[in-house]
Every structure is written in C-alpha cells, then in structure tokens.
C-alpha cells in the first residue's frame, strides 16, 4: 500500500466529524445556556451541512468526462 494513504487515513475526516458531533451534543447539555447553545448549534450544523452537500452532489448527474 502506498504511504500517502497511511498518513491520510480514511478515518481522519469521519473521526473529526464524530468529535465535532459529540462536542455539539454535550455543549448544550453540560454548558449553561448562552454561548454554549450557539456553539452546540454550530457544531451540529457541520454533519447536517456535510450530509446535505454530499447528498445533493450524489444526486446530480455525473460530470462530463
């Protein structure tokens, strides 16, 4: 296997997304209102936006070769 792949593990982005999601879930629960709500919304908007972006992109017809 090439070394570029090991440095850029396929898990890098999924792990980052999971961390951001967990932070968002806990921010509003453990933090006390105010800024923590906003941080929670911002963090949890990331998986929402990624889902929407890739879903729309996946439904578009293939690019011209």
């Amino acid at each position: 296997m090439n070394t570029g792949r090991t440095r850029n593990s396929p898990w890098a982005i999924p792990a980052l997304l999971a961390l951001v999601t967990l932070f968002g879930l806990l921010a509003a629960l453990v933090g006390e209102g105010g800024i923590w709500w906003a941080l929670s919304w911002a963090a949890l908007a990331v998986p929402c936006a990624c889902s929407a972006y890739y879903f729309v992109r996946g439904l578009l017809p293939p690019d011209k070769p």
Binding site: P14, L17, L25, P47, C50, S51, R57, G58, L60, P62
Partner: peptide, 25 residues
C-alpha cells in the same frame, strides 16, 4: 460518489457516506 457505473453503486457510496457523517449522532 461513483455515479457512472450503476445506480446501485451511486447509492452504495451515498449510503456509506451519509452513514459515516451522521454516525455519532
């Protein structure tokens, strides 16, 4: 997302991708 080969492959990639994006939630 591989779109050129078949609908199934396109949806396999979408299923895997959306699944991993929303995994934690």
């Amino acid at each position: 997302i591989r779109k050129r080969h078949s609908n199934r492959l396109r949806w396999l990639d979408l299923h895997n991708l959306l699944g991993i994006i929303t995994l934690a939630w």
